[in-house]
Design a protein around this nucleic acid. Structure first.
Length: 154
DNA sequence: GCCAACGTTGGC
DNA sequence: GCCAACGTTGGC
């Protein structure tokens, strides 16, 4: 696919794991409250983009499988929900601050790729994931890196 | 518009 | 549960 972009998206499996995504088939990727991550979603993410589903704060942390961007540019409904952890009192429906994408389940990797496994690979040594202090919950990666990781997991 | 205080992320 | 890194907030 032409001009397809690739992303690594982090989720804490206790909150929402790749098993949950398989069960639901699709999910709204809500709760992104970081401007850089938001801007990726709003400006660069496109329908059909490839997604690596990353489990953070897990034992171990790592990439669990594949997903696909199925919708982009949706207003994140949790920002208006005063009972939500992601409620943003400064946001209004007329001028929403936060957006989300919809993600569709693709597959579990045959082999879970732990951070340790990934770090050993020269081919992907430039991943943002490995950068010290890098906490972005949505990170871009290039086609080569994506394909390499995909092959590694299957 | 500087910057200290504070909050959050996420590996360990 | 600790804590380094770093984003955000808000007083000035």
């Amino acid at each position: 696919m032409k001009n397809r972009n690739y992303w690594l998206m982090k989720s804490e499996p206790e909150e929402f794991s790749i098993d949950d995504l398989r069960k639901n088939k699709k999910t709204l990727w809500t709760g992104v409250r970081n401007y850089q991550a938001r801007n990726f979603m709003v400006q660069s993410m496109k329908k059909g983009d490839g997604v690596l589903f990353y489990h953070s704060n897990a034992q171990p942390s790592g990439i669990a499988g594949l997903a696909r961007v199925s919708e982009v540019g949706l207003v994140d409904p949790t920002q208006f929900d005063s009972k939500s952890d992601y409620y943003d009192p400064k946001s209004t429906p007329g001028a929403p601050r936060w957006f989300c994408a919809e993600i569709e389940y693709e597959s579990h990797f045959k082999r879970f790729l732990s951070l340790d496994d990934l770090r050993k690979c020269k081919e992907i040594e430039n991943l943002l994931l490995f950068k010290k202090g890098q906490r972005l919950s949505i990170q871009p990666l290039n086609a080569l890196e994506f394909e390499f990781i995909k092959k590694m997991g299957n």
